[in-house]
């Protein structure tokens, strides 16, 4: 999972010379608050740094570069049969692979848009409403956040039990209040399956944007809104013209995090719709496609093919995140 600090850190790391200059101008020294530091003997340094460096390099960084290398070869089972150039990539974008790729890609896109529309909007609404209310604030925030703790696999199984057409609690509850028409085969209908997944995913994650927006709201001085109100602005106008612009950085961070999370979504779909993205691939996503290409693939070249897919996904997710973070930072600087 990716958290807010991570993006903030990435932002700082990616900021490069410009924000470095800013830090020097304001704080002095390279990084803010950094003590002068000592120059330790090499052996001591190694003792402190090498364990983490080795673990991280061997199990995280090296495999990623290996994946890149794997993707450039033709494989016969677990044996590299020869240099393939970009063959694995061209195959990914042609024929039946392309069909599956773009279908899964489209589902990820819908997943992202749906989540932004429902989860982010609701999260913002709850944060704003909670910001002004005193009564039970802590309890409500905790209640909204509790599902975040639960494993996506558990969430998926729990909801598929509850959404089961015959014995499920959801349809039973709908029938009990006379809404029989709404009792649908939620996970079995190709039209409903993806929206259902988005809602279940929202149920799990809504506390996250809500907490981020709450923290951002708490950081906005009350005087701004008060000044606008004194000038006669209505509550809605104050929100649109004062509060919302000040929340833009937080909205940006939430969007990037939602994008990363949604592009990597796998567990929930696996639990609710299986590794094929049932019904009939209506909920297939890139994560599942990658898993199947790598581990449920009769193709002799499974390793080459899945590695090419991994590289494409990596470049896309990482690339968009970096670009989006930079654009957001620029926009933020302009607003300031």
């Amino acid at each position: 999972m990716v958290r807010a600090e991570q993006v903030v850190a990435e932002e700082r790391a990616a900021a490069g010379p410009r924000s470095g200059g800013r830090a020097r101008a304001s704080g002095g020294g390279r990084a803010k608050g950094r003590p002068p530091g000592r120059r330790p003997p090499v052996a001591l340094l190694a003792a402190f740094i090498l364990p983490a460096l080795a673990l991280y390099t061997v199990f995280i960084i090296y495999p990623l570069f290996s994946a890149l290398q794997y993707s450039l070869f033709t494989w016969e089972g677990t044996r590299q049969a020869g240099f393939a150039g970009l063959d694995n990539f061209t195959r990914l974008f042609s024929g039946v692979y392309a069909e599956r790729f773009w279908r899964a890609f489209g589902h990820n896109g819908l997943f992202f848009l749906g989540t932004m529309a429902v989860q982010t909007t609701l999260g913002l609404a709850f944060a704003v409403l909670l910001h002004r209310s005193r009564f039970g604030k802590r309890f409500l925030q905790t209640a909204y956040t509790l599902p975040y703790l639960v494993s996506p696999i558990v969430v998926g199984y729990l909801w598929s039990l509850m959404l089961s057409p015959q014995f499920g609690a959801v349809n039973e509850a709908l029938r009990a209040v006379g809404l029989d028409a709404l009792a649908q085969p939620w996970t079995g209908d190709p039209q409903l399956a993806l929206p259902t997944l988005i809602l279940v995913n929202t149920w799990q994650w809504i506390g996250f944007p809500m907490l981020l927006f709450s923290a951002a709201l708490a950081g906005i001085p009350e005087e701004y809104a008060e000044a606008a109100r004194t000038d006669g602005a209505s509550g809605a106008r104050v929100f649109w013209h004062v509060t919302l612009p000040l929340l833009l950085p937080a909205i940006g961070i939430v969007s990037v995090l939602t994008f990363i999370g949604n592009m990597n979504v796998l567990d929930l779909v696996y639990a609710m719709q299986g590794s094929q993205g049932a019904p009939a691939g209506a909920t297939d996503v890139l994560g599942l496609l990658f898993y199947r290409t790598a581990f449920q693939n009769p193709d002799l070249n499974a390793i080459g093919q899945s590695s090419a897919l991994a590289v494409v996904m990596f470049v896309f997710i990482f690339g968009v995140s970096i670009v989006a973070t930079r654009v957001l930072r620029r926009a933020e600087e302009r607003l300031r």
């Binding site: 995280i60 990623l64 996904m313």
Partner: peptide, 27 residues
């Protein structure tokens, strides 16, 4: 500590924050 390449090393560790590590599962 201050040492040669400390900033680079920090950046190297930080790069891991946004990497979807599952994509390296085959290697």
């Amino acid at each position: 500590f201050r040492f040669f390449g400390d900033a680079l090393l920090t950046a190297f560790f930080m790069a891991g924050l946004m990497i979807p590590i599952r994509l390296g599962v085959v290697p």
